[in-house]
Simulated scan of single mutants.
Amino acid sequence: MRINNEINDKEIRLIDEDGTMLGIVPVPAALELAFEKDLDLVEISPNAVPPVCKIVDYNKTMYEKAKKEKEAKKAQKVVIIKEVRLSAKIDEHDLEVKSKSAYKFLSEGSKVKASIRFKGRQQKYTTDGLDVLLKFADLIKEVGTVEKAAALDGRTMTMIISPKKQDTV
């Protein structure tokens, strides 16, 4: 965004501080008009023919822009993904322990990525891993829903589970 003397075009389309279109004006005349009002000439649309400029208070404009960006950032919700690693030959009790930690993560509002890494000859028996992931999803179905179904990517099978929406009463 170029301002005042940085604008090096011959003519510009000028907009007044209240939004009134003043037409196509030479840059020196526009600068003079802006300085008379003790404001700045700011280029809004540099790619237009001729470029569009507006007479505004540059510092106030930049302050309001920063304020809007800060508000937008404040409104953002950061999604945290916690990972739970399982095994294709995991025991029943170990699966329950892993599901309790995933239950805790989901109740805190985080997503859970359940993954199984197949080593060596285990790659032939990926159906065992799929069964483990489905059983895992069934154990935590009270607080989470499967967002992305189990899929094999190379040697790793992953499933993403997101927390269920809380009903406010």
Score class of each variant (00 low, 15 high):
K37H: 06
A34K: 02
I24R: 11
N4Y: 06
A150P: 13
K60M: 11
T158P: 01
E71K: 10
Q122C: 01
D9N: 14
K54I: 15
K165A: 14
R2T: 01
D138E: 13
E69S: 08
I140D: 00
D153I: 12
L152G: 01
D16Q: 09
K68P: 00
G23A: 05
A149S: 09
E142Q: 14
N47M: 13
S107D: 07
T126K: 12
D91K: 15
A88G: 15
I90T: 08
A72K: 13
K164H: 09
D38K: 13
S45Q: 09
T145I: 14
K68Y: 10
S87W: 06
R85M: 12
K54L: 07
A48C: 04
R155G: 01
S87P: 00
N8G: 14
M157L: 14
P163K: 03
G23S: 07
K119E: 13
E83G: 04
G120R: 01
L133Y: 13
E64H: 11
Q122F: 01
P50M: 09
A66L: 10
I44F: 02
G19C: 08
K54V: 13
K77C: 00
K37C: 05
M62C: 06
I15T: 09
E6N: 12
N59T: 09
P26S: 14
K77T: 10
P26H: 06
A88H: 05
T156F: 03
R155Q: 04
D94A: 07
I81Y: 02
S101R: 13
R155V: 04
G109H: 04
